[in-house]
Design a protein around this nucleic acid. Structure first.
Length: 261
DNA sequence: ATGCCTTTCCCAGAAAGA
């Protein structure tokens, strides 16, 4: 079973790239972040024509997450299962989607950016991680097959960023963000790319500006996290850097992992 | 030292991303 994650930075702008990639990579499940679509604008029929059922949790201009599957979709949860609500408009942000696909409990997340250390949005980000952990406790069991994936907007350690000093506003590398992320992993999750490869420079995001991709100025912030029984069955995992090349790419590359049955 | 790019809103330039 192949499971993939990709922050597409607008599904409307990226639909041809996503269709092409589905044909090439043939994932059984593809999780998307930053669709930037309302639910009624989601191209479900396009994906149905390619053999994928889909669920989408969107809000319009910002955010938006989806799960595509050719191995079934059941027990869908839009957003957080429960827990303390956020203040005001932040509560309605479409950043989390949960479904069971082919026997795997799949959770996909688009973690808030945080803007800069100390900003109101930064504290929101830390709360968001805590609420994600509570969500996992409510909807999944780490002794079964669970895959949590998406754009975590944190570089787990210094191997995961080209230059920590050059991260805008100090986000993505701060100790508090890394600790909040570690609490999510403490649910019982293994970072399968990191488990397989200890190398630095395995990035998933590169700024559009200044030719960052070609200079290898990137960060590894898109992650595939598996529960122990699923992680034990990892066959292979990769960042598809070809997804960041060519015409009108997202600023993120897709990740894909294959698990034996 | 600063911006560099891309997307959305929708036709002008701001907001947001990371």
């Amino acid at each position: 079973m192949r499971i993939a994650t990709w922050n597409v930075n607008s599904l409307n702008a990226r639909l041809p790239r996503v269709e092409e990639w589905l044909d090439q990579a043939k994932p059984d499940v593809l999780c998307l972040q930053e669709t930037k679509l309302a639910d009624d604008a989601f191209p479900a029929m396009t994906f149905a024509g390619l053999g994928y059922e889909a669920v989408h949790h969107g809000e319009g201009r910002w955010n938006g997450v989806a799960i595509l599957s050719r191995v079934g979709i059941a027990d869908v949860v839009d957003g957080f299962a429960h827990g303390e609500a956020f203040d005001g408009a932040l509560e309605g942000e479409a950043r989390l989607l949960t479904a069971t696909c082919g026997g795997v409990r799949v959770v996909t997340a688009y973690v808030p950016n945080g803007r800069e250390v100390g900003h109101e949005q930064y504290f929101h980000k830390l709360k968001w991680f805590a609420r994600l952990r509570a969500h996992l406790d409510a909807v999944a069991d780490p002794s079964t097959d669970v895959l949590v994936c998406g754009d975590f907007n944190v570089a787990p350690d210094d191997r995961d960023v080209w230059d920590p000093a050059r991260c805008n506003g100090g986000t993505h590398v701060s100790a508090a963000e890394r600790e909040a992320y570690a609490e999510v992993c403490a649910f019982g999750l293994v970072d399968v790319l990191r488990q397989r490869y200890p190398d630095e420079g395995l990035y998933s995001w590169w700024d559009y500006q200044a030719g960052a991709f070609h200079k290898h100025w990137g960060m590894r912030i898109d992650l595939l996290l598996a529960s122990p029984p699923l992680a034990e069955r990892l066959d292979w995992v990769l960042v598809d850097r070809n997804g960041r090349k060519g015409q009108k790419p997202s600023d993120h590359a897709p990740l894909i992992a294959a698990f034996s049955d």
